[in-house]
Every structure is written in structure tokens, then in C-alpha cells.
């Protein structure tokens, strides 16, 4: 008896029903969990609750509670706060996200200044353009948020909204002030040609560093399944650094860009590095990388 009642309690206790693929909490369960905490606090203070119910009554009560929880679970709902966490990540609110972007803009302008020795008017124009980029981003966020608010209680219509949140994440994480930004356009128009050449060199050097990191990490990861001799490793890394281009932006897709580009290299250049068994295993990876082509094109990481 003790066991079965307890099982019922276990079943009735907070169920954090998580939305598939997104991890959003459902409000009904959260409310129930909060109420449990409040009750516990009350009982601890009062200290006389032990004889409130006999176990038979208690069983009926638990059945009722379970039904209530099930009813709440049926109502699909994703919290508005969850939207910000998806877009800005790391549990950040929109306000925190904005502060982060303001800091990033300041760091970015400072970095350009270090390389190009900006004049005050140039600096002011860049800061203005950067604020424009941030505003443009938040306008997009608000548009998607509106759509999110309309479907956040509708599981059927909810999945497509994820397709719109994902590009916002990508934009935020791959560098807000890259080639399609207002900052870049102002740089082209405002800097002297010699300043701009220095900026381009600096940007390219930075992208190359990220590319070098991506290549090294991809090779290390591949070696979990296909260990290489040092000589092979060095040759493969050199080939990829020499024959592939840095991606147009930073971020998680950089690894897929590396693999995709490696898969596009002429076989006669890559195959001689590996022996027959290694090459067969590597081809499986290249096939998967080629399948990423439409996605990488869609997000403009490859031409």
C-alpha cells in the first residue's frame, strides 16, 4: 500500500513537460510545482499535518491531482521568456542581449581603431552604423517574437517558428558586423583606401585564425575514428589550409565548411595522404559533408 500510494505521488509530482526539440516548459506543471513548495513551507511551520488524512482518502485525492496535472499538460504553452533564451542564449533576456551587442560594437570599433587609426568623425559614423545594425537585428527579433506570441499555445503551428528563430541565432553568433552589415558598408565608404586595405588584411588574418582552429579541430575529431600518423596529419592539415578558404563568417558551421571544402578537393590531391582503409572511412565523412551543401549555401557560408 505504501509503495503504491508513493508511486502515485511520484507520478503526480512536478512534471516538467518539455517541448520536443526546444525544451520549453509548460506552464501548468510549473504552477503545480510552485504550489507544492508553498504547501511544504506551510506544513513545516504548522507541524501538525501528519494526521490530516488517512491513506484511503489520500489515494483519492492524489487521483484528482493527477487528473488536474494531465489537464494542464494537454494545454501546450511555451513561456515568452523562453523565446529570449532561444534567441540570445545562455539564459539571457533581450535587455541583456542588447547590452552584449553594445559591448561587442564597442570592442569592434576599438579593434578597427587599433588597426586603422580612425579619426573622430570616422569613429562616430561607425558607431552610428553599428547601432543601426543592432536596431535592425532587434526589429527582426520583434517581428519573429510577434509570430511566436501568436503560436506559442498552438503545437501544430509552433514548429515553423523555429525556422525563423534559428537564423536569428546564427546572425547573433556569427558576427553581427560582418560583410552584410551597415558597419561594413560605412567602412567601405568612410575609410581612406590605405586604411581600408589594412582593415581587410586584419579581417582576413582573423578569419584565417578561425579557419586554422576549425581545421585542427576537425582533424582531431576525425581521428577518433581514423587515427593518423603524424606525417599524414601534418600533410592533411597543410593541404586543407592551403587549398580551402576561410568561411565568410564565424560560428559552428565553420566545421562543416571545412569538411565540405575538403570533400570538394580533387581526389588525386587528398587520397595519396591516406592508405586504402583510411580513405574508405574518410569517404563516408565526405559524403555527409557534401549533403550539407544546400544548408551552407542557404546561410551564405559558401558561394
Amino acid at each position: 500500500m505504501t509503495y503504491s500510494v508513493s508511486q502515485n505521488i511520484m507520478d503526480a509530482l512536478p512534471k516538467t513537460r518539455v517541448c520536443r526539440r526546444t525544451g520549453g516548459f509548460v506552464r501548468g506543471s510549473y504552477r503545480f510545482r510552485t504550489s507544492i513548495s508553498a504547501i511544504l513551507a506551510t506544513v513545516l511551520v504548522a507541524g501538525n499535518a501528519a494526521h490530516a488524512q488517512n491513506l484511503d482518502d489520500f489515494h483519492d485525492v492524489i487521483v484528482e491531482e493527477k487528473a488536474a496535472v494531465r489537464e494542464a499538460d494537454v494545454a501546450f504553452e511555451v513561456s515568452p521568456r523562453q523565446f529570449d533564451q532561444w534567441v540570445f542564449g545562455g539564459g539571457q533576456s533581450a535587455a541583456q542581449g542588447r547590452r552584449h551587442l553594445d559591448s561587442l560594437l564597442a570592442l569592434h570599433v576599438e579593434s578597427i581603431d587599433r588597426v586603422c587609426s580612425l579619426t573622430d568623425p570616422q569613429r562616430a559614423k561607425l558607431e552610428l552604423a553599428g547601432r543601426g545594425d543592432i536596431k535592425r537585428f532587434f526589429d527582426e527579433v520583434e517581428d519573429v517574437r510577434q509570430e511566436f506570441m501568436e503560436v506559442r499555445r498552438d503545437q501544430q503551428k509552433f514548429n515553423p517558428i523555429w525556422q525563423k528563430i534559428s537564423p536569428l541565432q546564427l546572425k547573433l553568433n556569427s558576427g553581427m558586423f560582418q560583410h552584410d552589415s551597415l558597419v561594413y558598408k560605412v567602412l567601405q565608404r568612410t575609410l581612406e583606401s590605405e586604411q581600408f586595405a589594412r582593415y581587410e588584411d586584419h579581417s582576413l588574418e582573423r578569419l584565417r585564425f578561425h579557419h586554422r582552429a576549425n581545421v585542427a579541430m576537425v582533424v582531431a575529431m576525425l581521428e577518433n575514428g581514423i587515427p593518423l600518423r603524424d606525417e599524414q596529419r601534418q600533410s592533411f592539415i597543410k593541404l586543407m589550409l592551403d587549398e580551402t578558404d576561410p568561411p565568410r563568417a564565424y560560428g559552428q558551421y565553420g566545421y562543416y565548411v571545412v569538411l565540405y571544402q575538403a570533400s570538394e578537393l580533387p581526389e588525386e590531391e587528398v587520397k595519396p595522404i591516406f592508405d586504402e582503409g583510411q580513405w574508405r572511412a574518410l569517404r563516408a565523412c565526405f559524403r555527409r559533408a557534401k549533403a550539407m551543401e544546400p544548408t551552407l549555401k542557404k546561410i551564405k557560408l559558401i558561394p
Binding site: 500510494v5 508513493s6 499535518a49 490530516a52 492524489i62
Partner: peptide, 12 residues
């Protein structure tokens, strides 16, 4: 109901 749940949590 709440009292009953709390009792169970504490004692069962």
C-alpha cells in the same frame, strides 16, 4: 488536497 500531498511528501 495540498495538505495531503505535503503530508505524503514529508512522511511517506
Amino acid at each position: 488536497i495540498r495538505l495531503a500531498v505535503a503530508t505524503a511528501v514529508l512522511f511517506v
